[in-house]
C-alpha cells in the first residue's frame, strides 16, 4: 500500500545535480495551475491527492508538469467545469494547428 509518490528510502540511482530551467510550456502549466488555484476551484491538498491517484504507471511515466496537466484535466471534468468531449475536440484542434505552424515536433500518443 505504498502510493506512487511515496518514494522516501527506495533504491535509486545518482542525482542529476545540475538544475535545468523550466521550458515555456512548463511555465504556462505552472501559471495556469496557480490561476485555477487562486480562483479557489482546487486546493493544494486536492492537487496532491489527484497526482497520487494517477497510479504507479502514469506517475512514473509522466514528467512533473505532465502529471500536473493530467490531474488538472481530471479535476476540471470531475468538478463539471469541462467535459471529456470538449477537451478531446480541443486537443485535436490544437494538434492540427501546431502541426500547421511547425510547432509540433513529434506526434506523441496518450498512454
Amino acid at each position: 500500500m505504498r502510493g506512487p509518490h511515496d518514494v522516501g528510502g527506495l533504491p535509486e540511482g545518482p542525482v542529476e545535480t545540475e538544475a535545468h530551467p523550466l521550458t515555456f510550456w512548463e511555465k504556462q502549466i505552472d501559471g495556469l495551475r496557480a490561476a485555477v488555484g487562486a480562483k479557489g476551484l482546487v486546493n493544494t491538498h486536492e492537487n496532491r491527492a489527484a497526482v497520487e491517484a494517477l497510479g504507479h504507471d502514469a506517475y512514473n511515466t509522466l514528467h512533473y508538469y505532465e502529471r500536473w496537466t493530467a490531474t488538472l484535466c481530471r479535476q476540471m471534468i470531475e468538478k463539471g467545469v469541462l467535459t471529456q468531449d470538449e477537451i478531446d475536440a480541443r486537443v485535436a484542434a490544437v494538434r492540427r494547428r501546431l502541426a500547421d505552424t511547425g510547432e509540433l515536433e513529434t506526434e506523441g500518443g496518450a498512454p
Binding site: M1, D6, G8, G9, E52
Partner: peptide, 9 residues
C-alpha cells in the same frame, strides 16, 4: 487508502 502525509518509511 487515500491521501496521507505520513511517509511509509
Amino acid at each position: 487508502p487515500g491521501h496521507v502525509r505520513t511517509p511509509v518509511y
